[in-house]
């Protein structure tokens, strides 16, 4: 059973391969993702995070999930030598880990209901559990940052998370012919496989900020692999990455 939703211009997909799949379970998971979007979207002027940024709400008065996110952001800042930081120009933007956190918890909701085989995908980031309807590991295609209709790698994963930092939007920035600033980065996209989507997402965000050194940084982390694509069309990947690649 599979459903797709559109939220803030991002697609969210959820599929349960278990025979016992119920539509309500999928609806609940989407409602949770919607709640996260309503709460943490910096584009919504009345979201909780926006009210904090507008100084209308003190962090100490914020909801428990908000305080959780801030604590996790601080932890991640320390884990990544400051490369991950939700504070930009006096405003907080925790989107670099909120998505992974939301997906992981939507997955936890499904596990709670007894499902073992499913995936949750939001904005290109994935938590995959168990196997697909054919009883095989979930096959994940990594989108080509040069051409959205193509995939450049096919992974086989189970019980782990795959997050990509760096987007087509970023590519636009790099190729923007009007821009006269020198290129700041040569990395177009960095895909990270981690023990779960929360871990993969936050480290992908931090590693992307490290530019070309990002993939090496991921290589130093136990249980993480990375695949980085630069603007010359060259992919650089960690030693253990190929274990996840579909052997054709």
């Amino acid at each position: 059973m599979k459903q797709t939703r559109l939220m803030m211009g991002r697609l969210q997909l959820l599929e349960i391969a278990d025979a016992s799949a119920r539509e309500e379970s999928i609806d609940d998971a989407f409602l949770f993702l919607e709640y996260v979007d309503d709460t943490f979207s910096t584009y919504k002027p009345d979201s909780e995070i926006s009210r904090i940024n507008q100084k209308r709400l003190e962090l100490s008065q914020a909801s428990a999930p908000m305080q959780t996110i801030f604590a996790m952001a601080e932890e991640t800042r320390q884990d990544t030598d400051g490369y991950f930081d939700i504070l930009h120009k006096g405003h907080y933007d925790p989107s670099g880990l909120v998505k992974g956190w939301a997906i992981l918890n939507a997955a936890a909701m499904l596990r709670e209901r007894g499902y073992r085989n499913f995936y949750v995908e939001a904005g290109g980031d994935i938590e995959a559990a168990g196997v697909n309807a054919q009883g095989e590991k979930w096959r994940v295609g990594i989108r080509n940052p040069f051409n959205m209709r193509e995939i450049v790698k096919v992974l086989e994963i189970s019980d782990c998370g795959v997050a990509t930092s760096g987007t087509y939007v970023r590519g636009q920035h790099i190729y923007n012919p009007k821009g006269d600033a020198p290129l700041q980065t040569s990395v177009l996209s960095l895909t990270v496989i981690g023990p779960n989507i929360y871990e993969a997402d936050r480290f992908a965000t931090a590693a992307f900020a490290m530019d070309e050194r990002g993939v090496s940084f991921i290589g130093t982390l136990e249980g993480f692999e990375a695949y980085q694509i630069d603007q010359a069309g060259v992919a650089t990947f960690t030693d253990g990455f190929e274990r996840y690649v579909l052997q054709s």
């Binding site: 995936y119 290109g124 980031d125 295609g141 450049v152 290589g219 992919a235």
Partner: peptide, 27 residues
Amino acid sequence: AMPWLQQEAVQAQSAQVDIIGGATLTS
């Protein structure tokens, strides 16, 4: 390349997949 990293040219794949991840569709 650093010794523990490998490199390749990116190439379009044609295999069937369950999910597509990667660059986000926010344009």
